[in-house]
Write a protein that binds this DNA or RNA. Structure first.
Lengths: 353, 353
DNA sequence: CGACCTATTGATCGGACTCAAGGTTGGTGG
DNA sequence: CCACCAACCTTGAGTCCGATCAATAGGTCG
């Protein structure tokens, strides 16, 4: 059961509203002024806060400010209740970070709609945060319920891409963002001598190249299908509109990007000082993490030696020598192009050294 | 002069409002329905759109949707005008990405306040985007006018840090985010063999370590003063609240992070395949970019060879040998610990090869 | 089944790391 | 103010990792 904190100084109003909420099967915490409200919020961490603006002791803005300063309560949805006369103040409240407002007197349906909408959104938001970086669309899928996302899912044009086909080149203007429906895609950069370095591996449910989209609309890397793929092309305006207009999506994005930066930094450290052997171990783990079949996880991954070398950032021959060593040590097994991890611990040891 | 697009089907209302705006010295484009409004918006790209909800041909939501799909108009502030009876609809509008709403009838002051607030914000937003990544606070400074930021500027506790003093270690919980008031700071990671790799150089006006803050509240790197510094400690709640609650700040952040990811990818490519010589050239340029005195730009930068080596990601001795070569070739000059660039072009050539 | 691509192994070479030793610089305390 | 110490810079020699070139074996696809 969801808990709602109701902060309202007028006793009638408070009891009335509380009753409506309880009938709708919410647990209601009642506070008669802002100070008490903040105390309750800190102690109980409600799922949502309804708060009057004009109050003795500590007014609605004060409450919002206090809750915003504490990480535990900062993300709790906050809805203002305001009398008609305070219309100008509501705007101030929204600017301070309230999520919504209701003008008194309000209908029961109006109240419940606002609450439900916010709770749904907030839950989505929180759940999304637990997942890792790469599956933006796992989030997107969950979000399907959101009005804002409906349009993106609809009228998708999908197309096939053959193995080795290039989806876009570095420097291309990205009018559409590819979204991988099935298959595997790698993104890479090419240095002035023509050597490739793989910057990302993507699978079902990933968007590709949005980084460049955010930078200046041009791709910062080249994307190529590793096998036959099905991709949907999402008009960039749709993605941008979603990102710009929806706060929850923005914040989710920030976390994802921050995570990505952190990973890249880790990678830099590795590349700077680790031997090819260590980097190979690391790369094997990463590739398996990303592409291993879920059902039969150690069944192996099929990847060309050249591609793997580009992930590690070394010459193909060096990579192969290293694989041979690992094979002899019993850490991995190969069958033609497939590579299977036999001793994960061993690889992890190597990678972290 | 700012241009405002007013979309309103009621002729009286339209003329009245337009008059108010013209008196306040705005240029006003008038449209009598949504379809005409979208056309005008595309042709003229106004600075702000005022739009009624209920209209023939294409209603307010439609207009918002159409404008949102076009990059040129997506970022134009959008304010709904709604009759009282449409109160429920307003919420829908805000969810679709409108920036504000006004309930008819409105006061002149109410209208002008809403418009001015939005314009100011939007300009700030756009200006901020042109700058590079590192000076988050250049943005912050410009933003000083924003209500939301007032509190961050105020009651700063600042403290001195001595040369070589550690501001925080990798893994520390970051309760306060250091903000560099004066001096230079480097951030670095340490690998398992104790070698350091510099991930960032920071100077006046930079926040440090916010990446970790976004990830899980723990620092992902170590920060150390390169010289005597003055730092302000910003409570992380303040920064997070700002980030979470203010859409413009969120989006700005996204762009910054995307830029950072791009740079790190570039760096990875370099590190993977470029020789020490090339990387040294690159690092010299970067360090000068970041720390050279503005007044006398080629006066040189003072940095220990060890630190520079950690930036390049090589051994101190290798770095020194490389510096010696560059000196002999006339690309740089050294005086004790200072390094001065003599031939920038030459270095750039080297770096890009 | 044959042409072509990819994987593997060998031999060689060079760049960069390590260890070692001597020269400079800068700061501190008498 | 000067001497001395410690930290830092610089150079040399030796070694090793990994890149390159070359040649062969193994798979794959038309």
């Amino acid at each position: 059961m969801k808990t709602i904190l109701l902060i309202e100084d007028d006793a009638d109003m408070r009891e009335n509203t509380a009753e409506m909420l309880e009938l709708a099967d919410y647990r209601v915490l009642k506070a008669e002024n802002g100070k008490r409200g903040v105390e309750l919020a800190r102690k109980e961490t409600p799922d949502l806060v309804l708060c009057d603006i004009m109050m003795p002791e500590l007014d609605g803005y004060g409450v919002l400010h206090m809750l915003g300063r504490n990480p535990a309560t900062a993300e709790v949805p906050f809805i203002f209740l305001s009398a008609k006369a305070e219309r100008g103040d509501v705007r101030k409240g929204m600017e301070m970070g309230a999520d919504d407002y209701l003008t008194k007197p309000f209908e029961e349906s109006e109240l419940l709609n606002a609450i439900e909408g916010r709770l749904k959104r907030s839950e989505l938001f929180r759940r999304g945060f637990d997942h890792g970086f790469e599956g933006l669309t796992k989030f997107m899928e969950q979000a399907r319920g959101l009005e804002a996302l409906k349009n993106i899912g609809r009228d998708r044009r999908t197309r096939k891409a053959e193995k080795k086909e290039t989806l876009f080149h570095e420097g291309d203007e990205l009018r559409n963002i590819p979204f991988v429906v099935s298959g595997k895609v790698r993104t890479f950069k090419i240095n002035s001598e023509g050597k490739e370095f793989v910057t990302g591996l993507h699978g079902t449910g990933d968007f590709i190249g949005y980084m460049g989209l955010l930078e200046n609309g041009h791709a910062t890397e080249t994307a190529e299908a590793l096998e036959e793929c099905e991709v949907a092309l999402i008009p960039r305006e749709d993605l941008l509109a979603l990102l710009y207009k929806d706060r929850d999506v923005s914040i989710r994005f920030i976390k994802m990007l921050a995570h990505d930066v952190k990973e890249k930094e880790q990678h830099l450290l590795q590349l700077a000082y680790a031997s090819v052997r260590q980097r190979v171990a690391q790369a094997l783990l990463r590739v398996h993490e990303r592409y291993a079949q879920e059902k039969d996880r150690d069944l192996g991954v099929r990847i060309s030696r050249e591609d793997l070398a580009a992930i590690v950032g070394t010459a193909t021959e060096s990579l192969i020598r290293c694989l041979t060593d690992l094979k002899e040590e019993g850490a991995i097994e190969t069958q033609g192009r497939d590579i299977r991890i036999k001793d994960r611990n061993r690889l992890e040891d190597l990678a972290s050294t």
